[in-house]
């Protein structure tokens, strides 16, 4: 039980606590963004932390989800929710088709291939201006359900929180399942995993598809929340941000991915006091964390304090 719901329980407590402590919509907005990016990071962590494969192009899937909820209702007249499902399916199918050939690559070659995939998706979004509005971006219609319109930060706070907690439960369950064990076996040694009877290619591909689905859902939520989307969401910098969240927070740790999202989303807001030196200070903090807590924040601290934390990671 602890393994499956521990992380989700902690997240739920934090969500409620932040709701009562937050004194403005600005704080709630930052928290909402943390939840949405956290969801993408949890997904990517399944690929990176559990299966040991790198992806520098996951913002591409974020972009597919985001533009699906923008284009679906505007051009095809789809309900936003249906458009989100379509975007998630599209991201999943693309990950399945592309994943098979490129996951044969390893290490740097895989990093470059996924980077290329992300850049390609961003280029399509940038260039097909008739459909996507090009570099200037496009408006996203409000999400409406049975006459109830999802708008305002206080509403989206709970929608994003629910998605994050659900995502955490799924990721933790996956970890505790035979599939999770198979993925970790692939991570440790592909040859040994193969000898043990694990279909390595299939499991890698599954992890890639799952992480793409997480990213697409996060992208769709982000676009629906903001009501506006630009190609930045699919850009290379966003990819780097999500993978940094995973590595910084802790590879293979569900809570770690969320902690990474907190650092990369909330910290820049606190560092604005440094004005021009903001990026430098952010970089320094990240370097210090990586030097001091090598396995990532959550796993390193869990190892330090042992006990409860280790169980829930």
């Amino acid at each position: 039980m602890a393994a499956r719901f521990g992380a989700a329980l902690i997240l739920a407590l934090v969500v409620v606590a932040v709701w009562f402590l937050a004194d403005s919509n600005f704080v709630l907005r930052v928290a909402t963004l943390v939840f949405i990016y956290g969801l993408a990071a949890i997904g990517l962590n399944i690929l990176v932390g559990d299966a040991g494969q790198v992806s520098l192009g996951h913002a591409g899937f974020l972009g597919i989800g985001a533009y699906a909820v923008a284009i679906g209702p505007a051009s095809l007249g789809l309900h936003p929710l249906l458009a989100l499902v379509a975007g998630v399916l599209l991201a999943g199918v693309l990950a399945l088709v592309i994943g098979r050939p490129i996951l044969r690559l390893r290490g740097f070659a895989l990093a470059v291939a996924t980077l290329g995939l992300g850049i390609l998706i961003a280029m399509v979004i940038n260039n097909e201006a008739w459909l996507t509005g090009g570099p200037d971006g496009m408006r996203v219609g409000r999400l409406e359900l049975f006459g109830w319109r999802a708008r305002g930060t206080d509403t989206w706070y709970w929608i994003a929180a629910a998605a994050l907690i659900f995502g955490a439960i799924v990721a933790s369950s996956l970890k505790a399942s035979p599939t999770g064990r198979a993925l970790r076996a692939v991570h440790d040694s592909e040859v040994a995993a193969m000898v043990a009877g694990i279909d390595v290619a299939r499991y890698k591909s599954a992890a890639f598809v799952i992480s793409a689905v997480y990213a697409a859902i996060a992208g769709g939520l982000l676009a629906l929340y903001d009501g506006f989307v630009t190609p930045d969401v699919a850009g290379y910098l966003t990819s780097i941000e999500i993978i940094t969240m995973v590595v910084l927070g802790g590879m293979g740790s569900v809570l770690g991915a969320v902690v990474g999202a907190v650092i990369l989303t909330a910290l820049p807001q606190m560092l604005t006091a440094f004005a021009e030196y903001e990026h430098m200070v952010l970089g320094l903090i990240m370097m210090a964390v990586m030097i001091g807590l090598r396995a990532g924040i959550v796993p390193s601290l869990a190892a330090l304090f042992g006990g409860v934390l280790r169980r829930v990671r």
Binding site: F26, R29, V30, G137, T153, L222, D226, T230, D232
Partner: peptide, 10 residues
Amino acid sequence: DANQARTFAT
């Protein structure tokens, strides 16, 4: 970044 701009605007 549009998303960042919106956060700052808030």
